[in-house]
């Protein structure tokens, strides 16, 4: 069951925008830790079978990012030790670790995002804003690979008649130009057919609509409202300064005030939405299957 990926693309899109956006703009160690955990869980839920998690790469990246900051920034009051007379401070290290938690978690959110939001879905989301734009994208996706294929054909055709030389750079540049000229000529010529085909099917006969295979269901509405409410709550907390935390010169800010904990909880629920919907769906399926 891949219940989560079956939500309307708008819900999926807003979800990732919210969950990654909050992580990017709120520099709060606890919140970012929650984000990292949630993003890894979400990624594990959605990752394709063949795709490896590349844990080592991410651990390496994490270590490098965390160490770069204290090596180059020497602010902070708690000096741990000196390298070449430069102080390495606890605050800079803490900041580095927090920043790299942020980067890694956002990377994981984006990996899930790209696994879930296929080209079709993105097109659907943007098609809402402008049907013309989405048609343009769809046509570009069709014609760019076609041109690439065609230029390969032209190159092969010219080579097999002895007209494509690539012994030196100058010849291959000239050859490339000729391929390009031929491609342009051919594409303009053939473009007329496409234009006819569009017009023959009523393009330009009036206002277009935009067809999508996705329906906005009740459960999409509920999910969207939930996502927006949770996001608003966390944002409100941020605006109110509850989540403020500064590293320099000394760590300052109350990480576990009541309000802050409330905000973490909201964000935690937000990050765990994919897992929760997966579990409810799995239970539902188990129940339904027991009746088969």
């Amino acid at each position: 069951m891949t219940e989560y990926s079956e939500y309307n693309p708008i819900v999926t899109f807003v979800y990732f925008l919210a969950v990654a956006g909050l992580a990017m703009f709120i520099m709060n160690p606890v919140l970012l830790t929650v984000s990292l955990l949630g993003s890894v869980v979400c990624f594990c839920l959605k990752r394709n079978k063949g795709e490896k998690a590349n844990v080592l790469i991410f651990v390496g990246l994490f270590v490098v990012l965390a160490l770069i900051n204290p090596l180059f920034h020497h602010n902070g009051v708690t000096v741990l030790f000196l390298i070449n007379d430069n102080p390495i401070t606890l605050e800079a290290l803490a900041y580095g670790v927090t920043a790299s938690v942020m980067v890694i978690s956002v990377l994981f959110w984006f990996r899930s995002f790209s696994a879930l939001m296929t080209g079709d879905k993105l097109l659907y989301v943007f098609g809402r804003f402008s049907p013309k734009f989405s048609l343009m994208i769809s046509m570009a996706l069709r014609y760019i690979p076609l041109f690439a294929e065609r230029s390969k054909k032209i190159k092969d055709a010219r080579r097999a008649m002895g007209a494509y030389e690539e012994e030196n750079l100058w010849d291959s540049v000239k050859g490339g130009v000729k391929v390009f000229i031929s491609l342009t000529g051919q594409s303009l010529e053939k473009g007329i057919i496409t234009a006819d085909s569009m017009e023959a099917r009523g393009y330009g006969s009036g206002k277009r609509t935009f067809f999508s295979r996705y329906v906005f269901k009740k459960k999409d509405g509920i999910a969207l409202v939930l996502i927006l409410l949770l996001t608003a709550a966390v944002m409100a907390a941020k605006m109110a300064g509850v989540l403020d935390f500064s590293f320099y010169p000394a760590a300052e800010g109350e990480l576990f005030s009541v309000w802050a904990v409330g905000a973490y909880a909201c964000y935690g629920v937000l990050t765990l939405l994919p897992l929760m919907s997966e579990i409810t769906e799995r239970e539902k399926w188990r129940y339904l299957r027991s009746k088969i």
Partner: peptide
């Protein structure tokens, strides 16, 4: 063929 996906091509005329 105008669009990149089979389903979209089928819908193209109706969208118009």
């Amino acid at each position: 063929i105008v669009t990149d996906k089979v389903w979209h091509e089928l819908a193209f005329g109706l969208e118009n």
